[in-house]
């Protein structure tokens, strides 16, 4: 181990003075969040309004969609401040994560996505809470309460749905369908990219550590709380 201490970058304006590798990594992670927040709002949250069973659930989903869109806007604004072209921060410029390629078909699927995909998002945002690029750290702190609410939304509605046999069956089917795609969110085991992020203090944890944490938290929710089962997932390469 060297004595290297990564810089603490306090403002967007200070980024240009940092090493090129640090700048590139920060821009990459901002783009990833800006794109995926918008993908999520467009592919899952907005369509879910139609599937929600009551006006209350529809309006609640509407606000959740707006919060996800708001996260996209905040990451995009930070991106603009650090010189990322707008067109790089929209889904049209990026291949979607695999989970975004399956259009939402039911309310149960949406609740499971909030339960499990937003949990994955929480872990990613938690990892930024000590980020050396402080504008990103501040953004993580700002969005975290809403991310936690979204996951709680998924937990509450899944709990409610599981009170009936039909609901339990549909929630289990949605878990079986979507969950296998989620561990890949955390990237490859032994990733060189992740090592660079940690070297610069932008991220704190290895991909495999985060994935293991995610699998344990997902197990607690699905197996311990909902009394359902988690499907086996392929080991990450």
């Amino acid at each position: 181990m060297t004595d290297f201490t990564p810089p603490q970058v306090k403002t967007p304006d200070e980024l240009d003075a940092q090493p090129a590798e640090f700048q590139e990594l920060v821009r990459k992670i901002v783009i990833s969040h800006a794109v995926n927040e918008l993908y999520g709002a467009q592919v899952f949250d907005e369509p879910a309004i139609a599937y929600a069973p009551t006006p209350y659930a529809k309006w609640l989903t509407c606000r959740v969609a707006m919060e996800e869109y708001g996260h996209h806007v905040r990451f995009k604004e930070l991106g603009e401040q650090i010189g990322i072209p707008n067109e790089q921060m929209t889904p049209s410029s990026h291949r979607p994560l695999s989970i975004f390629e399956f259009p939402l078909k039911t309310w149960e699927e949406f609740c499971v996505i909030k339960l499990l995909a937003d949990l994955a998002e929480i872990l990613q945002v938690e990892d930024l809470l000590h980020c050396t690029f402080q504008p990103l750290r501040n953004l993580a702190r700002m969005t975290m309460p809403e991310e936690r609410f979204h996951a709680q939304f998924g937990k509450d509605f899944c709990t409610e749905l599981c009170r009936s046999d039909d609901g339990r069956k549909k929630v289990q089917e949605a878990i079986d369908h979507y969950f296998p795609y989620l561990p890949a969110f955390f990237g490859r085991t032994g990733s060189k990219n992740n090592a660079l992020y940690r070297h610069w203090g932008i991220k704190q944890r290895t991909n495999e550590d985060m994935r293991a944490d995610y699998l344990e938290r997902a197990r607690a929710l699905v197996v311990d709380h909902l009394k359902l089962t988690l499907p086996a997932v392929p080991e990450a390469a």
Binding site: P55, Y56, K58, W59, L60, T61, C62, R63, M66, F153
Partner: peptide, 14 residues
């Protein structure tokens, strides 16, 4: 009730 406040805001949003 965090969810009720959000549902109300969602209704205004819509």
């Amino acid at each position: 009730d965090l969810a009720l406040a959000r549902a109300a805001a969602g209704a205004v949003t819509q």
